[in-house]
Write a protein that binds this DNA or RNA. Structure first.
Length: 608
DNA sequence: GAGTTTGAAACT
DNA sequence: CAGTTTCAAACTC
């Protein structure tokens, strides 16, 4: 009997070790003190499941051993079930792990995504804290309050978790070393009734990926309750519900009524949605409203009760358990904390993180502050604009240069040697580079580009669709050889381009830089906005925030925002085209206007 | 902190 | 297996 699915149920440290040892451990700290740690069902107690991840368990153990207590980062609440499982571990290791179930430390789980092994209520946490404070020695995080079960039934969380009661508020407790025989008997009886009694209640979905994914932000909630819940009145949105408590969505295993803990549940989302994460009142109402509604619709007919729950409990509770795996979770952790929204499963943390009730913070997914500002097509457009600009600028520069060169040539043509590489100027002034190829209408034609060598930088700025146009790009702009090879007929033009190229590139790059700077600025503004919103949602900011939260920062940018919303970001007012070399008049005639009609702010607007 | 509600566990 | 009771946590006030 003792061995259950590979593990001994009861934490038996006592069994394998002298009672004295066990006892001392028991008294001193949880560390070795607590025996097997089986997490409450939720925790994936060691049972069979444990065997799956011995390595993880070992890691956990190592940490425990090092510090004598669970590292915050590894607290059970933060650990994944697999990590908690201990059965596969050698007994010596198991003992360390036993502590895990208790982990609940006063520390708030920083990682929403992970569920706590033993669900804890805020109260429990408080108590825990108190315990730790006693002598600095961390104690069992959670204490039961059993009065009639002697802590020898599954009603007792300690017993269910496979650990001895230590520092609990229970009465007539028999879940201790001193009453090991009784305890053992109780364990056997329990197992007799249900061989899986001490197995983890939450198991990963066999499907691997469940549909529990909440919105983008939500983390995946793969685990599901093995037995499922049977809730009738809570809508599975309260911690009465084991699924909710475990921060997982109700599954086909559940037999609950009016369940609101499923993916896509508005009630659930309302509870956890990040947008309201910082609004405790909202959460409370959402939870109660959801339940009330659910109940109302149910046949139970229980009157809707305005139950108000403490939002923070919801949040924290969910955070603690958040089983999820969220990407970017860490990234957003700070945000979550700030918003206090961890509650969502998606958490309230979450919008993200079915039923997920508890996903609060865990579900938050990272979203770039620029997400609303930049869209793929915007980038394309930007590229197009840059390319156009480059073309125009190049055209202007080349034109200028050729014109001046030609003029010079005309004046002293006779004196020029006709031979030599240096003779790059076209004989025919009319063949000026631009005249032939740079007509705006011809920009889209593939032939034009071919004639012009492009620098890698410029090419980089071009969108895919443009690449085909500039087939010659690979050739180093300054490479005479390449030039000559590229276009014998355009040599003159190529030469001109060669000379103006640096200017052109400079202009384009400068513009690009400015655009990026603006993006950064916008992102920062948005960040600031978000932060302020989180911190003081109630401070009804008077600042108008556009969809991006940034919008109104610079009126200049709003003149002609692109439909796609890129406008503000992309075209920052570019610094006036820089002067070209002295002596050149190219930029005296600022080509910019021609190329990119600007909105008046200097923002480039796509010709299209 | 007391009282109520809830749902799992235990029991019949 | 269904219904009932017991229990302790969650929740409300």
């Amino acid at each position: 009997m003792e061995k259950i699915e590979g593990g001994d149920f009861p934490p038996k440290k006592a069994q394998s070790e002298p009672a004295a040892t066990a006892a001392s451990a028991h008294v001193v700290t949880d560390y070795p003190a607590k025996k097997l740690a089986r997490q409450l069902d939720f925790a994936g107690f060691g049972g069979a499941a444990a065997a799956d991840l011995p390595e993880q368990a070992k890691q956990v153990q190592q940490q425990v051993m090092k510090s004598g207590q669970l590292p915050v980062s590894m607290k059970p609440t933060q650990m994944t079930r697999p990590q908690l499982q201990t059965q596969a571990l050698p007994q010596s290791q198991q003992q360390h792990i036993l502590l895990m179930p208790m982990q609940q430390t006063p520390v708030q789980p920083t990682h929403p995504s992970i569920r706590p092994v033993k669900p804890e209520s805020p109260k429990a946490r408080s108590r825990q804290s108190a315990n730790e404070a006693k002598d600095g020695t961390p104690k069992k995080p959670k204490q039961c309050n059993c009065k009639h079960s002697r802590c020898l039934k599954l009603y007792c969380e300690c017993f269910a978790s496979g650990i001895y009661c230590d520092g609990c508020n229970c009465a007539n407790c028999h879940n201790n070393v001193e009453n090991e025989p009784a305890r053992r008997e109780a364990v056997e009886a329990t197992l007799e009734r249900n061989p899986h009694a001490f197995r983890p209640k939450i198991a990963s979905s066999p499907h691997g990926v469940r549909e529990n994914r909440e919105e983008a932000g939500d983390g995946l909630v793969l685990p599901k309750h093995n037995k499922g819940c049977h809730c009738k009145k809570s809508g599975c949105l309260k911690k009465y519900c084991e699924c909710f408590q475990a921060n997982i969505l109700c599954s086909e295993n559940c037999k609950c009524m009016d369940c609101k803990n499923f993916e896509g549940s508005q009630e659930r989302q309302a509870l956890f949605h990040g947008d309201h994460a910082n609004n405790m009142a909202y959460l409370q109402q959402a939870a109660n409203a959801a339940i009330t509604g659910a109940i109302g619709s149910s046949g139970y007919g229980s009157p809707p009760v305005n139950k108000k729950r403490k939002a923070h409990e919801l949040f924290f509770g969910s955070m603690i358990k958040d089983p999820v795996y969220r990407l970017g979770q860490l990234q957003q952790e700070s945000q979550i904390k700030a918003s206090v929204s961890p509650s969502s499963l998606s958490s309230i943390p979450g919008p993200r993180f079915g039923n997920a009730a508890a996903l609060g913070p865990s579900k938050f997914t990272y979203r770039s502050l620029l997400a609303d500002l930049i869209h793929p097509h915007d980038i394309k457009e930007l590229c197009s604009v840059l390319v156009d600009y480059a073309w125009e600028a190049g055209k202007m520069l080349a034109d200028e240069k050729d014109a001046s060169l030609k003029q010079a040539k005309c004046h002293s043509e006779a004196s020029y040697p006709s031979s030599g590489v240096e003779k790059v100027i076209p004989d025919d002034c009319s063949s000026a580079f631009q005249a032939e190829n740079m007509d705006e209408s011809s920009l889209d034609s593939a032939n034009v580009p071919k004639e012009r060598p492009m620098s890698p930088g410029t090419l980089a700025l071009m969108c895919d669709e443009q690449n085909t146009i500039f087939t010659v790009a690979a050739a180093p702009p300054n490479d005479p050889t390449s030039l000559s090879n590229n276009t014998s007929s355009q040599l003159p033009h190529g030469q001109a381009m060669k000379e103006v190229y640096p200017e052109l590139e400079k202009i384009v790059l400068t513009r690009t830089r400015d655009c990026l700077k603006k993006l950064i600025t916008l992102g920062e503004l948005k960040e600031t906005k978000c932060s302020s919103m989180v911190r003081g949602a109630d401070s009804g900011s008077q600042n108008e925030v556009n969809g991006n939260g940034i919008a109104m920062t610079d009126s200049r940018n709003q003149h002609e925002p692109f439909r796609n919303g890129v406008a503000n970001t992309v075209p920052t007012p570019p610094p006036p085209p820089q002067k070209v070399e002295p002596g050149t008049t190219a930029f005296n005639n600022n080509p910019c206007p021609k190329v990119h009609p600007s909105d008046g702010n200097g923002d480039v607007i796509s010709k299209s």
